[in-house]
Amino acid sequence: MFGLRDGSGGHGWRSLVVAIGLLATCGCDRPANPQPATAAPEGIRTFTGSWSATGTRQTLPLAPGQQAAVFKVGGSLLLSGEQRPHLGFRAEVIGFSDSLSGVQARSVWTDEHGDRVFSELRGAEMGPGKVVNGRFIGGTGRYAGVSGEYTFRWQYLTDNEEGEVSGRVVGLTGWARLGSPLPPTTGGSQ
Rank of each mutant, 00 (worst) to 15 (best):
R135I: 11
Q83I: 01
A105K: 02
G145V: 03
A105L: 05
P128M: 09
S101F: 06
G43V: 13
F118V: 10
R116M: 15
A40S: 15
F118L: 10
T54L: 08
G74S: 15
A53N: 07
G65P: 01
R122H: 14
F152S: 11
I44E: 14
S80K: 02
G88L: 02
G114R: 02
G129A: 09
R168A: 10
G74C: 12
V146M: 06
W175M: 10
T54F: 05
G148C: 03
T140C: 07
G141N: 09
P41I: 09
R122E: 07
F118S: 06
T56L: 12
R106C: 11
W154K: 04
G129I: 05
R116I: 08
V131C: 01
P85Y: 08
D115K: 03
L87M: 09
W109T: 12
V117G: 02
G138H: 04
L172M: 11
P61A: 15
D115Y: 04
G43N: 11
P128Y: 06
G49F: 00
D111H: 07
G148A: 06
E92W: 00
D115N: 11
R168K: 07
S166W: 00
W175Q: 13
L79V: 13
Y156I: 08
T151A: 12
R116N: 15
H86M: 08
T59P: 06
E161Q: 07
G167S: 02
L60H: 11
G81S: 02
G138L: 03
T56M: 13
A39F: 03
F152W: 09
E92P: 01
R142S: 12
T59E: 15
R135Q: 10
Y143M: 11
G167F: 00
G163C: 05
I44L: 15
R57H: 09
A105E: 05
G148D: 02
A105T: 10
D115R: 01
E112G: 12
A91I: 06
G81E: 03
Q83Y: 01
D115F: 03
T54K: 08
L78P: 00
T48C: 04
A53V: 05
W154A: 11
Q66C: 03
T151C: 08
A68I: 04
V165Y: 06
D159G: 09
F96G: 07
G171D: 10
